[in-house]
């Protein structure tokens, strides 16, 4: 059975690297893997979505509406935008942060209130304040590792498999802090 993971966020938040780590973990777990990425214009602060699919044999590289087992959202509004991609029993992981799109900044639209509460009514949802933890650990850039660690138990493979891929993927100078951030997220209360 193919597993479908979606990573959504705002261009520049590091969704690409996150999807590559998930893909590598699945590949080393012995699965056929496809990852679909976004490059070019949308990366400039737009809404960005990447996909990871793994299983015996994977055909299409994208996850479609109603198919996602896990969605990892790096921002609340993006969680709301893509939540309908979830399967009936899919899990939604949300990094509890707000980034106002320009449509909100200029007052053309309003940032919805109570997004997490609304989503909790419909879906299995776990949220974490990744920014806060990353800053506490001393580097705001390890936010991705915190959130990925938080999401990893819902994907599987065991903590060690993840840590070894994180180690092999992130810049050498940041291996220790990224592993620490991942472990923090992995063990965080939910």
């Amino acid at each position: 059975m193919t597993k479908n993971i979606m990573i959504v966020g705002v261009g520049g938040q590091g969704t690409l690297l996150t999807s590559r780590i998930i893909g590598k973990v699945a590949l080393e777990g012995g699965y056929d893997v496809k990852i679909s990425e976004v490059h070019g214009m949308a990366q400039r602060g737009g809404s960005v979505v990447t996909f990871v699919r793994y299983g015996e044999k994977v055909s299409e590289p994208v996850v479609e509406e109603g198919q996602a087992d896990v969605i990892i959202a790096f921002e609340r509004l993006e969680a709301l935008r893509y939540a309908h991609f979830l399967k009936k029993d899919g899990v939604l992981i949300v990094n509890d942060c707000r980034i106002d799109p320009m449509t909100v900044v200029i007052g053309a639209m309003e940032y919805p209130e109570g997004i997490l509460e609304e989503l909790k009514n419909k879906h299995t949802l776990y949220s974490i304040d990744g920014q806060k933890i990353a800053l506490e650990l001393g580097n705001s850039k390890v936010l991705n590792s915190v959130v990925l660690g938080f999401a990893a138990p819902y994907i599987g493979f065991g903590k060690d498999a993840w840590l070894s891929v994180v180690e092999a993927t992130v810049p050498p100078k940041t291996i220790e802090i990224n592993k620490k951030a991942f472990a923090y997220g992995y063990e965080a209360e939910r």
């Binding site: 705002v10 261009g11 737009g46 509004l77 799109p101 639209m109």
Partner: peptide
């Protein structure tokens, strides 16, 4: 299985 929610656009 779920309906799409109308949310503010986030253009690049």
């Amino acid at each position: 299985v779920f309906d799409k929610t109308a949310v503010p656009n986030r253009p690049p």
